[in-house]
């Protein structure tokens, strides 16, 4: 998806700025927007670059900083926590060799915390890009990571 085609999908009205930004970043491999892309987006939606930057830096799913190909977002809130989300986090940290906020050296995985995903009835849970995984166990996590590694290769 090019910037132009993404932009054409949304009317040139400032109200679509947040959604257009997320849509675009989701489709990009590094899940982020660059400065020159922000300039073009600002022009299209007829808002200032300041405005776009404040929006990108405000929302958790928007970023100026490039991320890995697969962004793993793990819930650290109470319902998941009391359902052993720490063991899931430890599994991820061990298998990936990174801590939350970091990206694996091969650029494949970024690990982040996220707010409650609303899957507390199937806790613990995490998201990888736009897929939600629930009822997690350390074994399931290892299997999921292998799947993603295979998919990439």
């Amino acid at each position: 998806m090019t910037l132009e085609s993404m932009i054409q999908k949304y009317p040139a009205s400032p109200e679509y700025l947040v959604e257009a930004l997320r849509d675009y970043q989701m489709a990009k491999n590094d899940h982020s927007v660059t400065e020159s892309e922000i300039v073009k987006i600002a022009k299209y939606f007829n808002v200032t670059e300041s405005k776009v930057c404040s929006v990108v830096s405000f929302y958790s799913f928007l970023s100026e900083k490039p991320k890995g190909r697969y962004v793993i977002r793990i819930c650290r809130d109470v319902p998941c926590f009391v359902n052993k989300s720490e063991s899931i986090l430890k599994t991820l940290e061990t298998r990936l060799g990174i801590k939350p906020g970091e990206t694996t050296p091969d650029g494949l995985f970024t690990l982040e915390y996220t707010g409650c995903l609303g899957q507390c009835d199937h806790a613990p849970a995490f998201r990888i890009n736009d897929m939600t995984y629930v009822d997690l166990t350390p074994d399931k996590v290892k299997a999921i990571l292998s799947e993603y590694r295979e998919e990439k290769s």
Binding site: E35, I38, T48, S50, V52, C53, S54, F58
Partner: peptide, 20 residues
């Protein structure tokens, strides 16, 4: 002119020109 906007949210806010 809108040079200054808050970047980030919560206590990490910095009032800044675009792109920091």
């Amino acid at each position: 002119v809108n040079v200054l906007e808050p970047l980030n949210r919560g206590h990490e806010i910095i009032i800044s020109p675009p792109f920091g």
